[in-house]
Design a protein around this nucleic acid. Sequence first.
DNA 1: ACAAAAGTGTTCTAGTTACACCCATGG
DNA 2: CCATGGGTGTAACTAGAACACTTTTGT
Lengths: 236, 236
Amino acid sequence: MTPGPLYTYRWPRPALTVDIVVFGFAAGHAGSGPRLDVLLIERDQAPFEGRRALPGGFVGEHEDLEAAALRELEEETSVRDVYLEQLYTFGAPGRDPRGHTVSVAYVALVRPIDHPALAASDARRAVWTPVEEATDLAFDHDLILKTALARLRAKLRYRPIGFSLLPDEFTLGELQDLYETALGHELDKRNFRKRVEQMGVLVPTGAKRRGPHRSAALYRFDRARYDALDVEAFDL
Amino acid sequence: MTPGPLYTYRWPRPALTVDIVVFGFAAGHAGSGPRLDVLLIERDQAPFEGRRALPGGFVGEHEDLEAAALRELEEETSVRDVYLEQLYTFGAPGRDPRGHTVSVAYVALVRPIDHPALAASDARRAVWTPVEEATDLAFDHDLILKTALARLRAKLRYRPIGFSLLPDEFTLGELQDLYETALGHELDKRNFRKRVEQMGVLVPTGAKRRGPHRSAALYRFDRARYDALDVEAFDL
DNA sequence: ACAAAAGTGTTCTAGTTACACCCATGG
DNA sequence: CCATGGGTGTAACTAGAACACTTTTGT
């Protein structure tokens, strides 16, 4: 019953890492349409030197998995205060050429405020990349990204996680753009707004977003009101 | 780029295990109603000696996670040929008193044919336990079981995994019993049968199950027909 | 003959989809 | 003044929910 290295080190074992798929949503401005981005690191050492990879790293002993994910994320990309959710654990023996390494993958969603800050930070080489262009990644990170996208798309429909990708205040148009971009197909404007309104989890702030055209009302997601709802009651 | 122990052993790291939540469904006979069971092991050593626990054990180096789960399952309970799906990875630093141990949990679904064989096998102490009575388990296995149940309930609705809990041939009544037991509430018989029929993934075998009352037609799940369906088209 | 499970249709309701026009603003 | 996105209502359709009786079989 004594905790200790005796037992801990007796057998060889796989190494344990965390990898984080960080999604960011860039609202469309004039010219550029809305984009779903993923945050990638350019590796500066072998294996896969020069290849792009998901941020991540080794889990310390006595370190919580989620804590390790947040730590690596901040160390490598300066991103903090994110929605974080465990995705899946990847453990195929050949996935890391250095030896058997099992990786617990997480999905993080960040607000656009955090995007521009990245370039100015001490982040080594973190770059926002449109998801369609995020291919040929190191290790099995293509597979991890694909899995993360599938999860994001599935969960967006029945959990209010989309708001973690938008600024505190947003227009209904921006919310719809996010859904259309992430889901990959268009939605009917009137039906979309109808459903959003019926749910009653958005409160108008009274402010307006002024743009190149007619200004739009700003809304805020009301988590308290959402929590008061039945589970299952959120459905876009 | 050389794979090897040099890098592999440099740092202390959490140990890695797999744990498996094995669900079994016992159709109701005269007297006893239908039951959803979990397969538990009685621990014969510290920590948690004498307590019940989920089957599981350490992942070998260069061993695939799913392979490790299947191996441990067979070693400890003689159960083979099961539906297996990764559930979640539990890594709170205090979950194992021997030291930091991260566990990748799996859910397995087995057919009732395998139930009675267990007692006669070399399985140490594997016992089928109704889920409501599976409390006070070792480690954080109460939490793992709770998570597994939530997943089973959620997934039963939109994926055809329920058939992995039934014998090859089954009656519609048994299928409905399974759904009612797992979901924890009653379903309308006519609507249930209507939906099942509309899906068109069950084929009648022509045979009848003879019981204490009117005999019932037997069906078989047709996986080929299911695969031909759209995803999302399965919805009970 | 009776107890118990098998089997079968219809109606009503609620939710989802499809669809087109006017409005406000900035350039 | 015009281009662009903001904002609004209704009708048709479809899917889901509610509901009761007859049939078969073993005891």
